[in-house]
Amino acid sequence: MDRSKTYMNSYLAGILIGVFMIAAYYFSGEGLGASGAMKAVVITAVNDINHDYAKEAHFFKARVKDEEKSPAKTWLVFEIIGVIAGAILSAAIYGRLKLQVVKAPHITNKTRLIAALIGGILFGVGSQLGRGCTSGMVMSGMGVLSLSGFIGLVAIFGGGYVIAYFFRKLWI
């Protein structure tokens, strides 16, 4: 059997992610996030290029006030560097490190890549407006029973089921 098509049992993987989430809260008081680290990268880049702009603009100013500390030196950035290392490690073990475009059989690579770009842009905007993404707000929010996490859950997954029909040609 093709090793690259074997996956860890879903429930086991979920329970172990839950254990790591507990550890994140216990040691650091943080949830498991992703979009927050990407935001930190954007803030750092803009601050490095034009600090005078960043310290005045509302999106940036709270995070660039401290002149001594880089806005990239946050827990989430270190966590996400770990995520990258962990994903590569797992893909190496399962034999899934391969350059490829993953898509439904009948759509072209071009369609898939354009859709991926549009989807990414929407997720970039949505995660900033919604105050976090599927990991940092919804999953980590569920762990601490935050109302915000459950609103996000309903909006993302509930919304997804409502609109899924219109995008079916991209997937099936």
Binding site: A116, L129, G130, I156
Partner: peptide
């Protein structure tokens, strides 16, 4: 904003097929 942002993310997911953590 969480409800509206979540709705935008739903479109992002159905069109792009990932969320930030999984895409990374």
């Amino acid at each position: 904003p969480t409800l509206i942002g979540g709705g935008i993310m739903a479109f992002g997911f159905l069109i792009g097929g990932f969320c930030p953590g999984t895409s990374l």
